[in-house]
Design a protein around this nucleic acid. Structure first.
Lengths: 229, 229
DNA sequence: ACAAAAGTGTTCTGTGTACACCCATGC
DNA sequence: GCATGGGTGTACACAGAACACTTTTGT
C-alpha cells in the first residue's frame, strides 16, 4: 500500500536549465562545456542537484544565478525526466526548467568560467544524457507559450524597435511574419509604450523605440489574451 | 560546481495521480480515503513512491493499475511539486500525473478496497498535502488540452451519441455549447464513424451512435488540428 | 540620385457564433 | 395527441491574411 517511506527508494533529483536568449537575429540556447565528470568535455545544459532545503524553483534560481549572475529570471518548470539509465553515475531524475534572459545582461566572466556558449537552435551540438530531448521540449513549450502570453519581452533590451520585436517572434516561431499585420496585432494588445525616441543605428530614417508597459500588462494578465501570430 | 553526487541530497520521489472520469453528467475525480498514515481518514489522490527500477511513467501506470485494475490508461505528466513541508513525514517531491478513464470500466472491488469515491469537480473535499493544488492544475491542463487534441474519447464508452459527447465537452470546459455548432465542428474533424445503430434509452426517437476512428485520428495527429470550442 | 529600412490601410476570405423549426416515437 | 429529446441550415460579425507604395536621410 501507499505507506512505507523506504530509504532505498530515495533518488537524486537534478534540475537542468534550458536558457534562451536572443541576439537580434537568432533565438539561442546557452550551453556549458563540462570540465568535470561525468562526460567531461561534452556540452550540456547547466544543472545541479536539488538540495534538501530548497524547492525545485529555488534550485533553478540558484543554478541560473550561478551561471549568469542574474536574479529574478523568467523561468518555468518544464518536465521531469526519469529514464532508468539517463545518468550513468547514479539513479537521477531531472526536472528541467526553461529560462529566458536578455543576452546582453548576463555576467560574462561567470559564463566564461563555465566555458558557456550561445548556440543557435539549428546548431545545437550533441548534449549529454537526455539534454537534447529537454531542449526540444523547451522549444516546443516556448513556441506555444509565446502564442498565449507576451513572454518574449524578457529577451529584448529595455527599449526596442518594432522590427526587433518582430524578428524575435520570427525567431521563436521560426517563420516570417507580415510587418503590418504584426504591428497591428501588437498594438491591439496595448501593452507597449511608444517612446519619442528613435534608434538610428538600423537605418537612415531611424525607427521608433518602444517599451514594455509592465503595469498595463499586469492588469490584463487576468483576461489571458491570446496572440495568435 | 555541478559534481558531487552527495548521498544526503537524495529525496523521496512520489507520484500522485489525478484520475478523471465522466458519468454522462459531470466530470469527476477519483479520490481515496486513506486508512493509513500519514493523514489517515482524509481524502487524497492515489499515489505511491517511485521505485528505483522504474520510470515516472511506469510508476504512474503501476499506481493507476493498482487502484483501477486497468492497463493502458491515457495519462500525462503534469508537474512536480516540491514545497519543503508538503509532506510532514519526510522530504518528498511529488510528480503528479493526470489520467482519463472510462468510469464504468474500472474494477470496483479494487476501488472499494481503497475506499475510493468519485467526486464532481465542484464537490472535491479538502485533500492532504498539496493535492488540491494538483487537482486544480490538472483541470486547467485538461481544459486546455481538450481544445487542442480530441482527448475526451477516453472518457466515453466505445459507442456514444453526439449528445453524450457534447455533454462531456460541456463538463470539461464547464460551459454550455450550441448543439448545431458542436456537431458541425466535430464532423469537420472527421474522426468519427457514424454507426447504423441507435441508442434508444435517451429518447423516444433514438439517437445515432458514433465510434471514434482511431486510424483516421492517428493519420491526422501530425497536423495538430485545433478544436476551439 | 539612390539605397535601405520605416511606416502605414484596405480588401478578402474563412471561421466562430447565434439562432428556430420539424421529426420520430412511446406513452 | 402530446411530451421528449434528436436532428438539421443559414445569416452575420469578426479576425486573420494578403498585399504595395511613400517617407526619410546618409552616402
Amino acid at each position: 500500500m501507499y505507506t512505507g517511506y523506504n530509504l532505498d527508494d530515495r533518488v537524486f533529483l537534478a534540475v537542468d536549465c534550458i536558457i534562451f536568449g536572443f541576439d537580434d537575429e537568432d533565438l539561442k540556447v546557452l550551453l556549458i562545456k563540462r570540465d568535470f565528470e561525468p562526460e567531461r568535455g561534452k556540452w550540456s545544459l547547466m544543472g545541479g542537484f536539488l538540495k534538501s532545503n530548497e524547492t525545485l524553483d529555488n534550485a533553478a534560481d540558484r543554478i541560473l544565478h550561478r551561471l549568469t549572475g542574474m536574479h529574478d529570471i523568467y523561468q518555468e518548470q518544464l518536465y521531469s525526466f526519469s529514464d532508468l539509465d539517463r545518468d550513468p553515475v547514479a539513479r537521477t531524475i531531472s526536472t528541467s526548467y526553461y529560462a529566458i534572459i536578455n543576452i546582453e545582461k548576463h555576467n560574462q566572466e561567470l559564463t566564461q568560467q563555465y566555458n558557456a556558449q550561445w548556440f543557435s537552435l539549428s546548431e545545437i551540438p550533441d548534449l549529454i544524457f537526455d539534454h537534447n530531448e529537454m531542449v526540444k521540449k523547451a522549444i516546443r513549450r516556448l513556441r506555444r507559450r509565446t502564442s498565449i502570453t507576451p513572454i518574449g519581452f524578457e529577451l529584448l533590451p529595455e527599449k526596442f524597435t518594432m522590427r526587433q520585436l518582430q524578428k524575435l517572434y520570427e525567431a521563436i516561431l521560426d517563420k516570417k511574419l507580415d510587418k503590418r499585420n504584426f504591428i497591428n496585432k501588437i498594438n491591439s494588445m496595448d501593452i507597449l509604450i511608444k517612446l519619442n525616441e528613435k534608434d538610428m543605428t538600423s537605418s537612415t530614417k531611424g525607427s521608433f523605440l518602444y517599451q514594455f508597459d509592465q503595469e498595463k500588462y499586469d492588469k490584463k494578465k487576468g483576461d489571458n489574451f491570446y496572440l495568435k501570430l
